[in-house]
Design a protein around this nucleic acid. Structure first.
Length: 465
RNA sequence: UCCAGCGUAGCUCAGUGGUAGAGCGGUCGGCUGUUAACCGAUUGGUCGUAGGUUCGAAUCCUACCGCUGGAGCCA
């Protein structure tokens, strides 16, 4: 049996001229009967758009074709011709339709709109919906753009470990990694405690919550590096912005201070938005139509306008003088609450805002102490609707100051010998940040729930698929 | 984890103490180069689960499960 190579529907739709012989494969979105033939809308995921198939009643298996329902998979060969109807340029007049797989009439996806909540329950089928296939195409494109952005700027892509022995990376609860059977007696010491000496790595290990500490080591050799990989948090967070497994991008730059860091973060956010606008126009239009009518206005505004920068203490002053009634108190030394961040980006500046120089008491040990002795060179990039999308800092490069920071955070410096070594041997000012890939996707697509920008989301109590 | 809300047909939802409903989907028929086609008929239910109140519960009460929104933690 010899076949023509299958053509992606995306390519067929872009054709400049009719084609005598084309073979397509995909899933039926809908079928309508006409007098002597049937219209089939076929989608193969290569594009948001369907290709219309004309199935004439002269086909030997026309009776089978008329039984095709939404969801069935078929292979079609025929001629790509100019469409006689309105609404599409090209259509395919089939001379052969093979039914590969029928779809039972309980197939849950319909031509009509479905709620994201329902689609989440059928995570294995939702990639066939317009909304999710669009999200997944944008996700793919933006993952590519992440690499393009950093590679163009001379960054080296590094892979930091997913299994880590460090239980204090300054963020969140960790998932334990072990091969010990907790029920087995040989896993325990004579006191009944878990005996990690007998565990696979001969010590407690966890899934990483951040590749930052390792990225610092690599940046202090390769100058500019970035990671892009999975990250795990065992926080019992049940919100539309939190997942237990997500992807994070973490650039780290030697010989770079907080200013350079903020500039890079702002450029990066703009670059990703512009890339989606340029390369995913159909998908962006779909999001603007069905997810968020204000989407394109908002993100275009973000690309065009410079971001606001404000110190933490100025932000606190602004909030205090705002006259706004906040549920939570606002004062120097307290964390900014969601409502405060929203006021800054959504009400006051109406654009992304980078807040920097936070009190040292509310930030982790590795952030660089400023000359005032009270603040650290930290920054949070806030965007309307999502809140914090980037968190970063200049790192403390002075050995003595770092050791002092550790003691203040009740850490034992000796446990971090390799990290301190970086300050003993050729230390240099360095900076970096973390950007949550899914939060960026939410911002760019307008999709309000993180569970809907991940194909198979992991959240507390949920790992079905 | 805390607060609030919601679970009725494959999907979206109405029904708020007295015979379980509509639209869409599926099936059958009609019409038709259609565009979420159209017209007619038909199919489809353990009303989330388990108890309780009542002559009688989808409806009221309790517990549990699931989902959603908000908060905290964060990216």
């Amino acid at each position: 049996m010899t076949y023509l190579s299958p053509t992606p529907i995306k390519d067929a739709l872009r054709s400049n001229a009719p084609i005598d012989a084309v073979r397509l494969q995909g899933w039926v979105r809908t079928r309508r009967d006409s007098k002597d033939f049937s219209f089939i809308e076929l989608n193969d995921g290569s594009s948001l758009r369907n290709l219309q198939i004309i199935a004439r009643n002269t086909l030997s298996n026309y009776a089978d074709v008329q039984r095709l329902t939404t969801g069935a998979s078929i292979a079609v060969s025929g001629a790509l011709v100019a469409s006689q109807g309105k609404g599409q340029k090209w259509e395919l007049v089939a001379d052969k339709i093979e039914v590969i797989g029928t779809a039972e009439d309980s197939y849950p996806l319909q031509k009509k709109g479905h709620t994201p909540e329902f689609l989440r329950e059928i995570a294995h089928l939702r990639p066939r919906s317009n909304l999710f296939s669009s999200i997944l195409r944008v996700r793919s494109r933006l993952a590519f753009a992440v690499h393009e952005f950093f590679q163009d700027r001379g960054f080296i892509y590094v892979h930091t470990p997913i299994i880590t022995g460090s239980d204090c990376e300054g963020a969140g609860e960790l998932f334990r990694v072990t091969t010990l059977d907790p029920a087995a007696a040989e896993s325990r010491t004579t006191d009944g405690e878990i005996d990690y000496k007998k565990d696979f790595f001969a010590r407690p290990t966890y899934l990483t919550v951040s590749g930052q500490l390792e990225a610092e080591a690599l940046a202090l050799a390769l100058s500019k590096v970035y990671t892009f990989g999975p990250t795990f948090r065992a926080e019992n967070s049940n919100t539309s912005r939190h997942a237990s497994e997500f992807w994070m991008i973490e650039p780290e730059m030697a010989f770079c201070d907080l200013n350079g860091n903020m500039t890079l973060a702002e450029e990066f956010v703009k670059y990703l938005i512009a890339d989606a606008r340029k390369h995913c126009p159909d998908e962006m239009e779909l999001f603007a139509k069905f997810v968020d009518k204000e989407l394109l206005v908002r993100i275009d505004f973000v690309v065009e306008r410079p971001f606001q920068r404000i110190t933490y203490s100025d932000a606190v002053d602004l909030l205090k003088k705002s006259g706004e009634k906040f549920e939570f108190p606002i004062d120097y030394g307290l964390n900014l609450q969601s409502e405060h961040e929203r006021w800054l980006t959504e009400k006051h500046f109406k654009c992304p805002v980078t807040v920097f120089n936070f009190p040292k008491e509310i930030k982790p040990f590795y952030m660089r102490l400023n000359e005032d002795g009270k603040t650290v060179a930290a920054m949070d990039l806030l965007v309307p609707g999502i809140g914090e999308i980037v968190g970063g800092s200049q790192r403390e490069e002075r050995l003595e100051v770092l050791q002092e920071n550790m003691r203040r955070h009740d850490m034992v410096p000796a446990d971090y010998k390799w990290y301190l070594d970086l300050r003993r041997y050729g230390t240099a000012p360095h900076s970096g940040f973390g950007l949550g890939f899914e939060r960026m996707l939410m911002f760019i697509t307008g999709v309000p729930n993180i569970r809907d920008v991940i194909p198979f989301a992991r959240t507390p109590g949920s790992a079905e698929f």
